[in-house]
């Protein structure tokens, strides 16, 4: 990713999304929100939970908006800038609907769990039934609310399914402390106990991880 052409992530429905994420975060903890946009989540965490919350955002316009509102946000890139932080600098690092757009998702996850005790990751689920059906019936790359850009221009270069993500956590030794599948609006879906169903019906996955 370069700075001259900032990546436009898939549209965030922050208000509901952040409620689910904020629910995983303990009061008065240290939080880093990667891809924080205009800083809605960190503002929420400071105001409602007294967290020391900060943000990184690649889009300078969003950064300026956030800082203008008094939020500690710096321009930076998930792929390259996490390496600058010391081990265990945070209690939680949040990567909301950004994992699929970074260049090296596995390395980003590794860095997250180096600099923080917990990692909170959400991503649009490529295993959702409507995507599977479109691919099966039309034989073309599927288009949905979450996946709405053509394959040749999408910033979401590393799509994965909820099942894929479980497999990566297993391979890299991350413990899934908590997880859920939600629909696109962010409402919690009822199949959180059954990963197979969640992978079929959940539009996005939300994970709370820590090192084993």
């Amino acid at each position: 990713m370069n700075y001259s052409a900032p990546v436009q992530f898939v549209a965030k429905n922050m208000r509901v999304d952040l409620r689910l994420i904020a629910g995983m975060i303990a009061p008065r903890s240290r939080v880093l929100d990667i891809g924080c946009g205009d800083g809605t989540l960190i503002d929420h965490l400071f105001k409602t939970k007294g967290c020391d919350a900060r943000g990184i955002e690649i889009d300078m316009g969003e950064v300026t908006r956030a800082v203008t509102h008094g939020l500690p946000v710096m321009q930076g890139d998930a792929d390259s800038d996490l390496a600058n932080y010391p081990d265990g600098a945070f209690d939680y690092v949040v990567l909301s609907r950004t994992l699929q757009a970074v260049e090296r998702p596995r390395e980003v996850l590794r860095q997250m769990l180096r600099i923080s005790t917990f990692a909170i990751v959400s991503f649009p689920n490529f295993g959702h039934w409507s995507l599977r059906l479109q691919l099966l019936l039309r034989g073309r790359m599927p288009m949905t609310r979450a996946w709405h850009r053509m394959w040749y221009e999408t910033p979401n270069i590393h799509p994965c399914t909820i099942a894929d993500f479980f497999a990566l956590c297993e391979a890299d030794g991350y413990r899934v402390v908590e997880w859920m599948a939600a629909d696109e609006a962010g409402a919690r879906a009822p199949w959180r106990k059954f990963a197979g169903l969640a992978n079929f019906f959940g539009e996005q996955g939300l994970f709370l991880l820590r090192k084993v």
């Binding site: 500690p72 930076g76 932080y85 600098a89």
Partner: peptide, 18 residues
């Protein structure tokens, strides 16, 4: 400077004005 401040987990905002 921002990177150095990140190294010590300082609270840092960083903006480049066009």
């Amino acid at each position: 400077i921002a990177k150095a401040l990140n190294h010590v987990a300082a609270n840092v905002s960083f903006v480049e004005i066009a």
